Simulated assay, not measured.
Amino acid sequence: MATVKITNLHKSYGSVEVLKGINLFIEDGGFLVLVGPSGCGKSTLLNTIAGLEEITSGEIEIGENSVAGLHPSKRNIAMVFQSYALYPNMTVSQNISFGMEMKGVKKPEREQAVNKVAETLQISELLNRKPGQLSGGQRQRVAMGRAIVREPEVFLFDEPLSNLDAKLRIDMRTEIKRLHKRLGSTIIYVTHDQIEAMTLATKIAVLKDGCIQQFDTPYEIYNNPNNMFVANFMGAPAMNLIEGRIAKNKKNIEFEMKNSKGETICLPIHGINDIEQYIDKTVICGIRPESINDLDPSLNKNSVEREVVVDVVEPAGSDTFAVVELGEKQIVARLNGNSKVLGGEKVKLTFDLSQTVFFDSETEDRIR
């Protein structure tokens, strides 16, 4: 396997700049997920690494070698597409071995490689079938087998699970993660699904408008977002973003907001070095739904209890999501699945303040 290094990469189509100075480094055996909304440039970035798109400027290195301007066949990469791209008139075995056959690999060697890959992917019983006889998940396994048999330095996945139903997507996520662990391969994976990104990646790059908003581990992306875009994009449900004012009461610094009745609600702030610069200014407080819950506040010294009005309750099995009023907007709280809260009633909920983050309301950047 190999490292991948991308330095100051730009890609333009005429006067339209799609990638604006991308810098990334993927360690040998790493699993990088490129995530972002439609049109952010993630698929274009993947295609430049594959050699399917020419770059305007910058550098792409795989291992120790620059691949800028190199034909895709010379880059020692393998790509798995959203559409599977299987030959319908060939059997599964022939689809997997086709690339080896084109390179002149002898039949016994091809058969041995195909059998090994089929065993790894648990598709040995499908080798004599044609793609039309397979389910979506089986076709995706065949597409992965065709990539694996080449033993490339880097695997590229372009939204490979987006055509599958929800349950099969979860099963295939597990398969891909298991495969990565078994092969120790370097993988670059494009998706618009933040759950896929969080569960699969060793590193995530969040893109917006051709720029990287944050490049970090899933834990850091989720818990320590650089800006409001990352905070709002990563997570389902998304992070709650509440507008309010920073105030200093005696020795304490607090985040103040008003509810629809004009009553002031305050949350104490600790451990944010630059927050004093925002006293008497408007900021945005970010707090994840799971940090607003119905747990006993005495279990966590960083927790406070506040009364809120419940608007809508959404049971979801192991969790109950409650839409409640806090400040002048509605937010989502993640409660116990057995919670008995009802719409329209006042309840006391616990806020874990160790998990709150704050953003500048003008720049939308994180206040550290």
Rank of each mutant, 00 (worst) to 15 (best):
E314D: 13
P237I: 00
T3S: 15
D158I: 04
K130A: 01
N338H: 13
A205V: 03
K103P: 02
I292Y: 04
I272R: 06
M100N: 04
T48V: 12
V142K: 02
G51Y: 10
I272F: 07
E64V: 07
L200A: 01
K329L: 06
R75H: 08
I22K: 13
L45N: 08
S97K: 06
V309M: 11
S38I: 01
G145Y: 02
R141I: 06
D274C: 09
S354R: 12
P108G: 12
M257P: 03
V323T: 08
L353A: 07
S135Q: 06
N115V: 00
S97F: 05
I292M: 15
E17H: 09
T217G: 07
I367Y: 15
T363W: 14
N47R: 15
Y219V: 01
T56L: 06
I96R: 11
S162F: 05
E256A: 04
L70K: 15
H192I: 04
E328K: 11
A247H: 03
E64Q: 15
I279K: 11
I96Y: 07
L9N: 02
N76F: 10
Q140S: 09
Q140L: 11
R178Y: 04
K130N: 08
F25M: 09
N300W: 07
D280Q: 12
E364K: 15
G235K: 02
K250S: 14
K203C: 00
V18S: 12
E151G: 06
G262T: 01
P315V: 00
E17F: 04
S260W: 02
N293T: 06
R139S: 07
A238D: 04
L32T: 01
F351M: 08
M239E: 01
R366L: 13
K346E: 05
E151H: 10
N293R: 04
S57M: 10
K42G: 05
Q194A: 09
G99I: 00
C40Y: 11
F157Y: 14
R75Q: 03
L134T: 04
I204R: 03
K11R: 13
P152N: 04
K250R: 15
K329M: 13
T350M: 03
Q82F: 12
Q355G: 11
D296G: 07
V341E: 10
D294N: 14
T7M: 07
D280C: 03
R169P: 08
D165C: 09
F215S: 06
R173L: 07
E305R: 15
E119C: 09
Y278C: 04
Q140Y: 02
N8L: 01
F321W: 10
A118Y: 14
A50L: 02
E307L: 10
S124V: 03
L45W: 11
F351K: 03
H270Y: 15
I275Y: 06
D280K: 14
L267E: 11
Y189N: 00
R173T: 03
A50I: 00
G99K: 00
K281D: 08
G21Y: 05
N65R: 14
I221F: 12
L161I: 11
G132P: 02
A322W: 13
